[in-house]
Computed example of a mutant assay.
Amino acid sequence: MNKDPRHYDIIVSPIITEKATLASENNQVVFKVRRNATKPQIKAAVEKLFDVKVTAVNTLLRKGKNKVFRGVRGVQQDVKKAVVTLADGHRIDVTTGL
């Protein structure tokens, strides 16, 4: 399988949180993805990069927050997350690099 460089642009990074770790027990992996990425693009990228079978992709868009750091006001960017459900028998180890 040949890996297209555009797939690396779609998936920004894995999200490793307590909630994402609990989801991994149900064959789900959470990724931070590009904001304009579509579900079919995310599915194709995960299948090609990790050589797994994806059954479902759910996305959510977390709006950026207003924050104050050392007296300086700023706005965090919007973040799009993708919860990818894998077929039975397929696994992704997000602790290793790609």
Score class of each variant (00 low, 15 high):
V46S: 03
G64M: 09
V79F: 11
K80Q: 06
L86A: 00
P5M: 05
G89M: 04
N27C: 04
D88E: 15
V68E: 13
K81G: 03
K39D: 09
K3E: 13
D51N: 14
G64W: 13
I42V: 03
N66V: 14
V54L: 08
K67I: 01
L49H: 04
L61A: 09
T17M: 04
A45T: 02
N58G: 06
K43C: 02
G74L: 13
D4P: 06
L49T: 01
T17E: 05
K43Y: 05
T38E: 07
D93R: 06
N66Q: 15
Y8L: 14
D88T: 13
Q76H: 13
N27E: 07
K3T: 09
I10Y: 06
V94D: 11
S13W: 09
D9G: 08
I10L: 12
I11L: 12
T17K: 05
L98C: 08
V30K: 03
I11Q: 01
N66D: 13
K19H: 09
T85W: 10
R62I: 15
V54M: 10
T55Q: 08
T38H: 05
I11E: 03
N36L: 00
V79D: 09
G71H: 00
D4V: 06
K43H: 02
A20S: 03
V83A: 07
R35Q: 07
T95L: 11
V33R: 00
D78V: 09
F69T: 15
A20Q: 02
N27Y: 07
I11T: 01
A20T: 02
L60Q: 14
A44Y: 01
G64D: 11
K81D: 04
A82I: 00
T55R: 07
L49D: 01
V52N: 03
N2S: 00
K32N: 03
H90L: 01
T55P: 03
P40Q: 03
Q41D: 06
T96A: 09
M1S: 05
D51Q: 14
A45Q: 01
A82T: 01
L60I: 09
K19F: 06
G74S: 15
F69I: 14
R70E: 05
I11F: 06
T38G: 04
F69V: 14
V72G: 11
L49F: 04
T21N: 08
K63D: 12
V57P: 10
G89Y: 02
Q76M: 12
F50A: 10
N66A: 14
D4E: 09
G97C: 07
G71M: 00
V57R: 13
D4G: 04
K32R: 05
L98R: 12
K39I: 06
A20N: 01
R70G: 02
I15F: 08
N66G: 12
V94S: 13
H90F: 05
A87T: 02
M1D: 05
T38M: 06
